[in-house]
Amino acid sequence: MKFGVVVFPGSNCDRDIYEALKNDLGQEAVMLWHKDADLPGFTTEDCIVLPGGFSYGDYLRTGAIARFSPIMQAVIDFAKRGGKVLGVCNGFQILCESHLLPGALLRNNHQKFICKNTFVKDAEGNVLKIPVAHGEGRYHADEATLDALEANGQVLLRYCDEQGNLTNEANPNGSVRSIAGIRNAEGNVFGMMPHPERACSTALGNTDGRQIFEMLFPVIKEQLVAAH
C-alpha cells in the first residue's frame, strides 16, 4: 500500500504526516503537488492523504479554494473508483467541500483557535489522546444526515473525556453529537479533525495516533505486528 500526501499552498502538516507514515509506521509515502492533474502510479489499493494546514490561506472558507485545485478532480475520481482518501483537519474540510463526505466544518463555538491534546473514542470504545489544532472544526450536518451516519456506522471518532464520557466540557469545538471524524457510506473516504500523525512517535511521548491509522488501514497493523 502506498500513500500520496498532497501539498497545497498553505499546508503545514504535510511533512508531519509524511514522516509519521514513512518513519513511524514504515509505509511507502510520496509527496504530491496541488497542480498535478492526475495520480500516476496509484491504484485503488493505495491512499491519498489531504493534510492539515491552511490551504490557500483559508480565504473564502476553509477548504473552499483547495476543492478546485487541479489535483482534487483526480482525487474525487480516485475516490469514486474505490481508492482510499484520508483528510486530516484542513483535509477533512476539503473533503466536505468536495462532497466526498457529508456535512460541514464551522467556526468553533467559542470563536477561538484551539490547539491542545483532546481525548477521542473510536467505535469500539477505545479512548485515545490525540492533538487538535483548528479554528473551524465544529462538525455540523442536518438531523437526517446525522441519523444516517449513526445508522450506517460512519462515525469514526467522538470527543470524550479521559474516561470515555461524552460531555460538553470534553467537546473542544461544539461539534454536533461530539463527532470528531467520519467516513463515507462506502468506507473508503475518511475525515477527522484530530491529528493522529502528531501522536505516532515515542519521541513525542504519545503513540495513540498509530491506533487510528491501524483502524483505518488494517494492513499497517499487520505489518507492524509482523515486524515485531
Results as ranks from 00 to 15, higher is better:
S69K: 10
V120K: 00
I94H: 04
F119C: 04
G137S: 08
D24L: 03
M72K: 03
T44G: 09
P70M: 10
F119G: 12
A29H: 08
A64G: 04
L95W: 06
T62S: 15
P70K: 11
R81F: 10
W33S: 05
F42Y: 05
Y59F: 12
D36V: 05
Y139V: 00
H134D: 10
L50S: 10
A37H: 15
A66R: 11
K129A: 09
G137T: 00
H34I: 01
N23D: 14
Q93S: 11
L105C: 08
F54C: 04
G83Q: 10
I94M: 07
A29S: 05
N23I: 02
L86K: 07
A29G: 09
F78N: 00
K22W: 06
V30E: 15
C96H: 00
A66N: 08
F54L: 07
L32K: 02
A133N: 14
L50H: 02
W33H: 14
C115P: 03
C47F: 03
L100R: 08
H99R: 15
K84I: 11
E136T: 00
D38L: 07
N126D: 06
V127R: 11
V88S: 13
S69E: 13
C115D: 11
L95C: 07
E97S: 08
I94T: 06
L101G: 03
R81D: 14
G52M: 10
L105D: 02
I76R: 15
A104S: 14
D36G: 13
K22P: 01
D38V: 09
C47I: 13
P102H: 05
C115V: 04
L21R: 10
G52N: 02
P70R: 10
A66L: 08
H134P: 03
M31K: 15
G82I: 07
G83K: 04
P40I: 02
C115G: 12
R61V: 00
V132I: 14
R61I: 06
D77F: 04
G87K: 03
Q111C: 15
I94G: 03
F119L: 04
K35Y: 13
H34R: 04
I71S: 12
A64I: 02
G125M: 10
F42T: 02
I48D: 01
L95I: 01
G52K: 03
H110R: 15
C89V: 09
D38W: 05
N126I: 00
L95N: 00
G137L: 00
K129W: 08
D77L: 14
C89S: 07
P131H: 10
E97F: 08
N90T: 09
S69V: 07
F68V: 11
W33L: 12
K22V: 08
R107Q: 13
Y59I: 03
L60I: 14
F68Q: 14
S55R: 00
Q93M: 09
M31R: 15
V88Y: 07
T118I: 09
